[in-house]
Amino acid sequence: MTDRASAPTGASPAIHTVGLAKRYGSQVALAGLTMTVPRGLVFGFLGPNGAGKTTAVKLLLGLARPTSGEGLVLGAPVGDVAVRGRVGYLPELFRYQGWMRAREVLGLHLRLGHQPRPTWAAAIDDALRTVGLAGRGDDRVQTFSKGMQQRLGLAVALIGRPELVVLDEPTSALDPVGRHDVRQVIRRLRDRGTAVFLNSHLLTEVEQVCDRVAVIDRGRVVGEGPLATLLGGGAVRVRCTGLEAGALERLQAFGPASAADGWLAWAGLDHERVPDLVARLVAEGARVYQVDVTQTTLEERFLQLLAPS
């Protein structure tokens, strides 16, 4: 059994799954997720509505049981109870006991996470400050606005110094300032070595903070890798004249070119190769008037990946 999920030697990855699948009756929520999330990185988990992102998170946290497949979270099999003390989680549907004060909610989670009591007060203050709720700690959760409740949820996910933080659409209720704050929080988590699993369909957000990305659609991974690799360079457009017949064939090394309205275009070309391309064009006798280099956005790549194959 070579593809069994087993703990690699040394530090185990934050998440490692092999064929993790979940069916609800005849509805396939996750068709077989195989991926590895290294430690200390921000991992973006993208997909359209209903792709199975939340389902994957629930399986990883042991909230739902997989129909088949297996997975390891921080080296422990999914569903392991003890490991959840080292994982922070902000659910997509963030709801906390309305009758409690914000501090009490955080205290409850510290208690359930077996954190030593003397550290609580400082940890709670720190978490509240980090999410911008300093000064509201003694207010009842039911008096919080939706965005404040999501901030509290983020605090719950951060508290107790988890080794892995799973955020399921952490900015769905936040204002632009809040979104910015969340990105800061995520970067700070990475800086202190915490792995972040970020579930989102806000591509610009993912683009700004994620080191690695997986795109899933209809329950299966359709693209995975470091953000730069996944985007695969950009597009180059060159406006030029005087190119000899057959010259385009000799430029095959740069990939297939398309010509339209006096422009030649190459897709998926690495930045570093643009000067070479221009040099070759000139060598082939072309007169170059304009060169446009555009970086493929995650959105373009995302839509490409999701296009029905």
């Binding site: 909230l63 959840r84 003390g85 989680y89 659910p91 709801r95 006991q97 989670h109 359930l112 996470g113």
Partner: peptide, 14 residues
């Protein structure tokens, strides 16, 4: 019904 269970059960709580 409220969704509080999601946050609670994601802790080391059987």
């Amino acid at each position: 019904e409220s969704g509080v269970a999601l946050a609670l059960l994601a802790r080391p709580l059987r």
